[in-house]
Amino acid sequence: MIYGMILAGGNGSRMGNTHLPKQFLTLDDTPILIHTIEKFLLNQKLDAILILVPEKWLNYTGDIIKKYIGGMDKIKLVKGGNTRNETIMSGIAYIENTFGSTDEDIIVTHDSVRPFLTHRIIEDNINAALEFGACDTVIEAIDTIVESKNNETITDIPIREKMYQGQTPQSFNIKTLKNAYESLNEEERDILSDAAKICLLRGHTVKLVKGEVYNIKITTPYDLKVAEAIIKDSTYAERDPEEVATV
């Protein structure tokens, strides 16, 4: 089976003075999370869509989904963990307990505050995860990347042509990711926050999937302004929702 997994555990600390986590802030009068869920609902290959949220926001999330989307048949609300990886593992545990598991099951994990992903990106993630067992959505780095190990002086400037900026979705064969995560010791679990890197360090191939420049993550007030500009762009707004999803 193929599962969507939308990670909505952020508290929005970089968004400034707001009473709601960033995923619940409105974009074009609709919560950002709802925009993201709608993109997943357009993909018919997904057997279920899990929304991972902190326990105290479960009821609120259910309320806004019912208000803006209606039915919950394909959508499952799941309590997240304290970290990104713990949240993903919580989603995997829910899948195993609710649906069972096979060696072919995959998950498409995505940030709740990246509402501009496309149908093509989701499809490419599904295909790459089925073939390679793990994949990461990226775009080519436009700016030069500078490394500083002491946060004061440059220690390296990698060749830009080999650098990419990570986005989401990141998608995985469930058993591949779970086995890789369970092989980590406590120190590694504290350090490694990226699921694709966990797979890479355990010797698994991680396929690159082409992202889009506008597949932005909304984490600051500036990002929210950019997102409002994107969604109000006439060429975007005039399209049918299914056409937008297939860009």
Results as ranks from 00 to 15, higher is better:
residue 144 T to K: 15
residue 144 T to R: 14
residue 144 T to M: 15
residue 145 I to V: 15
residue 145 I to P: 05
residue 145 I to H: 12
residue 145 I to F: 15
residue 145 I to G: 06
residue 145 I to L: 15
residue 146 V to L: 15
residue 146 V to K: 11
residue 146 V to E: 13
residue 146 V to N: 13
residue 147 E to D: 14
residue 147 E to I: 15
residue 148 S to P: 06
residue 148 S to G: 11
residue 148 S to L: 09
residue 148 S to Q: 09
residue 148 S to C: 10
residue 149 K to M: 12
residue 149 K to T: 12
residue 150 N to M: 11
residue 150 N to E: 04
residue 150 N to S: 11
residue 150 N to G: 02
residue 151 N to K: 10
residue 152 E to L: 14
residue 152 E to I: 12
residue 152 E to C: 09
residue 153 T to H: 12
residue 154 I to W: 09
residue 154 I to M: 14
residue 155 T to P: 03
residue 156 D to F: 14
residue 157 I to K: 07
residue 157 I to E: 04
residue 157 I to A: 01
residue 157 I to F: 03
residue 158 P to K: 01
residue 158 P to D: 02
residue 158 P to F: 01
residue 160 R to W: 04
residue 160 R to L: 11
residue 160 R to F: 07
residue 161 E to R: 12
residue 162 K to E: 13
residue 162 K to I: 11
residue 162 K to L: 15
residue 163 M to Y: 05
residue 164 Y to A: 09
residue 164 Y to Q: 06
residue 164 Y to V: 12
residue 164 Y to L: 09
residue 164 Y to M: 10
residue 164 Y to P: 06
residue 164 Y to C: 08
residue 165 Q to L: 15
residue 165 Q to G: 12
residue 165 Q to P: 01
residue 165 Q to E: 15
residue 166 G to M: 08
residue 166 G to E: 07
residue 167 Q to C: 09
residue 167 Q to W: 06
residue 168 T to G: 15
residue 168 T to N: 12
residue 168 T to D: 10
residue 168 T to W: 10
residue 168 T to I: 05
residue 169 P to K: 05
residue 170 Q to P: 00
residue 171 S to P: 04
residue 171 S to H: 08
residue 171 S to L: 09
residue 172 F to G: 00
residue 172 F to C: 05
residue 173 N to L: 03
residue 173 N to H: 05
residue 173 N to C: 06
residue 173 N to I: 02
residue 174 I to N: 00
residue 174 I to W: 02
residue 175 K to R: 12
residue 175 K to I: 06
residue 175 K to T: 08
residue 175 K to P: 02
residue 176 T to W: 08
residue 176 T to K: 11
residue 176 T to P: 02
residue 176 T to A: 11
residue 176 T to N: 14
residue 177 L to F: 13
residue 177 L to R: 07
residue 177 L to W: 07
residue 177 L to K: 05
residue 177 L to G: 00
residue 178 K to R: 13
residue 178 K to W: 09
residue 178 K to Y: 11
residue 178 K to D: 07
residue 178 K to A: 08
residue 179 N to V: 00
residue 180 A to K: 02
residue 180 A to I: 05
residue 180 A to P: 02
residue 181 Y to H: 10
residue 182 E to G: 01
residue 182 E to K: 14
residue 183 S to W: 08
residue 183 S to Y: 03
residue 183 S to V: 00
residue 184 L to G: 03
residue 184 L to N: 01
residue 184 L to R: 02
residue 184 L to Y: 03
residue 184 L to W: 01
residue 185 N to Y: 00
residue 185 N to I: 02
residue 185 N to K: 00
residue 186 E to N: 12
residue 186 E to D: 13
residue 186 E to G: 00
residue 187 E to M: 05
residue 187 E to Y: 05
residue 187 E to S: 06
residue 187 E to L: 08
residue 188 E to F: 04
residue 188 E to I: 02
residue 188 E to Q: 13
residue 188 E to M: 06
residue 188 E to Y: 04
residue 189 R to V: 00
residue 189 R to M: 07
residue 189 R to L: 04
residue 190 D to I: 00
residue 190 D to N: 07
residue 190 D to K: 07
residue 190 D to Y: 02
residue 191 I to D: 03
residue 191 I to T: 05
residue 192 L to Y: 10
residue 192 L to W: 10
residue 192 L to A: 03
residue 193 S to W: 13
residue 194 D to W: 10
residue 195 A to F: 04
residue 195 A to L: 11
residue 195 A to I: 07
residue 197 K to L: 13
residue 198 I to W: 04
residue 198 I to N: 01
